[in-house]
Structure formats: C-alpha cells, structure tokens
Nucleic acid binder design. Sequence first.
DNA 1: CGAACGACCTGTTCGC
DNA 2: TGCGAACAGGTCGTTC
Length: 259
Amino acid sequence: MPELPEVETLCRQLKQTILGYVIEELVIMDNKLNCPKNVAGLRVRSVERQGKFLLIRLDPYRTLHLHLRMSGRLLWCGHADGLPAHSRFMICFPRGRLICIDPRRFATLALDDPKDRTAPVPDPLKSINANKLRQAAQGRQAPVKSFLLNQAIVAGIGNIYVCEMLHKAAVSPWRRTNSLSPAEWRKIAHAGRSILRHATECRGTSISDWRDLYGEKGRYQLHLKVYGRKGLPCACCGEKIQRIAMGGRGTYYCAACQQ
DNA sequence: CGAACGACCTGTTCGC
DNA sequence: TGCGAACAGGTCGTTC
C-alpha cells in the first residue's frame, strides 16, 4: 500500500509523536515477525525514511527497520483503545501505543538489520534528476516503468505514482529506457518531483484503506489522472484510459497522450 | 548481468 | 444471491 508519500507522511507524524520518548515494551502479535523484542527502556532518537523503509533510531545505538509492503499501516492509539483487527505488533510508550495493522502480513520488522549498511539510494523527493536517471539507464532495455520501480535505482516510487509520473511526462510505460531522449528524462524527473511533493502535501492517496498515523484519509486520490481510471476519459485529451498488465501489475495510461 | 514469473498472504470486488 | 476468479498500493528467489 504505502509508497514514498505515504511513508513520508508517517515519518513526519512519528517525529511529532514519539521523538524523545522511551519505549516501555515491544509486543509482537504475529509470530511470522521474528524480530527481537529487547528494546524496552530505549529512547527514540530519530525517525527517518529510506525509500519505503521507516527507520526508528534508538538510544543507545539500535535501529528498528519497518517496511509496510502492500497492506501495512501504522496507527497511534491511546492505552484505553482496543486492538484493531489484523494488529501485528505494537510499541508501547507512556503516552500511547504505536500499532501496526497489516491484513496481508507482508510487512517486515527488523532490529539492526545489516542491510542498513548498504549504500543509500537516491531519493526522488530530494535528489532525483534527469542526468542521474539517464546514466543509471545506460545499458538497460527494461520498460521505463519497470526501471522506475526498481528500488535499487531510485527508492520510493510505487505503482500508483509511476503511472501518474509517466502520464504527466507524456511517456508510454512500455518505452525502453535506452530509447528515451534527454528531454524525456527531464520531463520524467520533473513530473516525479512535482507529483511526489504534491502527494506528500496531501498526506498520500486513500483509494481504499490507506490512512495516516491518526486514522485520517489522504487527499491525493482527488488528483489522480490515470491510476484506477480505466475507461474514463483522459483529462488532457479525452481518450479512454487503458489498463494493461505489465509483469502482472496494473498499468494505467493514455495511449493518445503517452508516446 | 538483466528480465520474467511465481511466491508470499488475506480481503475485497468483479463477472457470470 | 452465490460462487469462483481477478485484483490489490511490494519485494524476493528462481530460472532463463
């Protein structure tokens, strides 16, 4: 479910909610999550986002790595509130509890994962630019949509926003990376930055079940141009939006606008 | 090395 | 209405 704007929203809200507070207890309800629980007494030093990962840095020197995958959510609850359905773990603080809800059970939680030491990947909110993308695309011939979804190249873009970016850039998802001109890379980089910033300001896209840390819907679903709009007219040209699977994933685009 | 595909899970929506 | 199929925002391991 969550892509960069949704994870960034949670990151910002967590900073306002748990920064500086001491963990009382980590309770794991889903034993599929085999994460060590010995973090009681540690203080939250910082909360960061790396791509779609949330890193909760603890004092002294431990880090919780959370990835919400497809259906994970985080909800801030008072101690008196009951546990929602599909609660998988919770981190208890004196002033409330942070609960992870995840119907499909794909989310992962790790303590001090060694993957932390891998080189950081460019973040499209900060450092995306046309030249870097074009260089990374050298020698590749994957469709540009698959390329942009590759988290080892740019971290954070998912299926909703890649469809929206390519529509705004007027580039077909099936174009091979090695066929794109410098001007097309510039349009993709610009569309990506602008859409991801706008979606973050809107606190994400609530198509069905995305909610922020306090249970509120995002607003970016009101701005979607292609995702989930199969058969509806394109806002730019009026042609019907298509949905065709690429690698098993729904790919929405306007065949008239996107060449 | 890169690309395609199934696997991991459960819930909801679609189509007959 | 009922039932199976298709679909869902993400990644990983295997195979070619």
